[in-house]
Design a protein around this nucleic acid. Structure first.
Ligand SMILES: [Zn+2]
Ligand SMILES: [Zn+2]
Ligand SMILES: [Zn+2]
Ligand SMILES: [Zn+2]
Lengths: 136, 136
DNA sequence: GGTGGTTTTGACAATCATTTTCAACAAGCC
DNA sequence: GGCTTGTTGAAAATGATTGTCAAAACCACC
């Protein structure tokens, strides 16, 4: 309590946080906190599960990773570009493609305000079977 | 095992299943299994929580109700029209409006097949603040 | 290259929605 | 009325996520 102000929070650079970030970069599609934790373990990197959860959540809030909740209620994460976008995910192998849908964005806002809604946000994900998985 | 065939499963009519269905009809927006369970309790209808879960899940699979997973991993249900559609949900009061988006549907399929994906499905929900909640 | 005030970590316990279990029960049918 | 089989529900199990809190790591600043 040196200054009177509420300083936002420093955010330190630690081995664990880098490990999580790097580990996430090495993943193809979306991974859950637990999967990433296992992966780091196998790579020799030792990071506590609790820490992986915290790091992913922080990254998510900072907009550095995207997260989505799967049908069975698992939260999965992925390194993403900072601009607003959506995903096309393969149900079999998890391969993920980022997609932008300007048309959808304007449509969403139009529909919402037609109905008197403001402060709009939306979730949109596409699922399917990718080429490799179909031919295999 | 009287016939050699695999008969699909009769599906019986019970007090509990009707109570769940009716209770759901009386709800405005989306409700979770637990909320509905509480509501039934308060109305004097006694239905086990397990049964509420099972009934809702069955109704969902039968296409009689729509379900979606909220950001915090709760599955919520609502009586819905049978055709494919999406929702515009008020973050404050839960009021829900069904919306159809033919344009989005075609867009989704186009984008998916451009990327070699087949067997497409999608999730799309809009969230916002409804008129009453904004003025209140 | 020490010191002190913070932040961060992580093993473990706690939560909490959902599922499983399984013995008692009730629908539909003879 | 009895039988067969799907159904119920209280209690226990599951499993992802979060809370706890003492020990370890960071980061200026001497
Ligand atoms: Zn694939
Ligand atoms: Zn969008
Ligand atoms: Zn509202
Ligand atoms: Zn649609």
């Amino acid at each position: 309590m040196s200054t009177g102000r509420n300083e936002p929070a420093p955010a330190r650079r630690t081995r664990q946080r880098s490990a999580v970030k790097d580990g996430l970069d090495r993943c193809e599609g979306f991974v859950s906190a637990q999967e990433l934790h296992d992966r780091l373990r196998r790579d020799g990197q030792s990071v506590g599960l609790t820490t992986v959860y915290r790091a992913l959540q922080a990254l998510g809030e900072g907009g550095e990773v995207d997260s989505l909740v799967t049908d069975d209620g698992e939260t999965v994460y992925r390194r993403c570009s900072p601009e607003h976008h959506h995903h096309l995910v393969c149900r079999s192998c998890g391969r993920t493609i980022e997609i932008a849908g300007p048309a959808v964005e304007t449509w969403a806002h139009a529909v919402a305000s037609e109905n008197g809604f403001t402060d709009i946000s939306h979730t949109l994900e596409l699922f399917g079977q990718c080429g490799s998985c179909t031919s295999a």
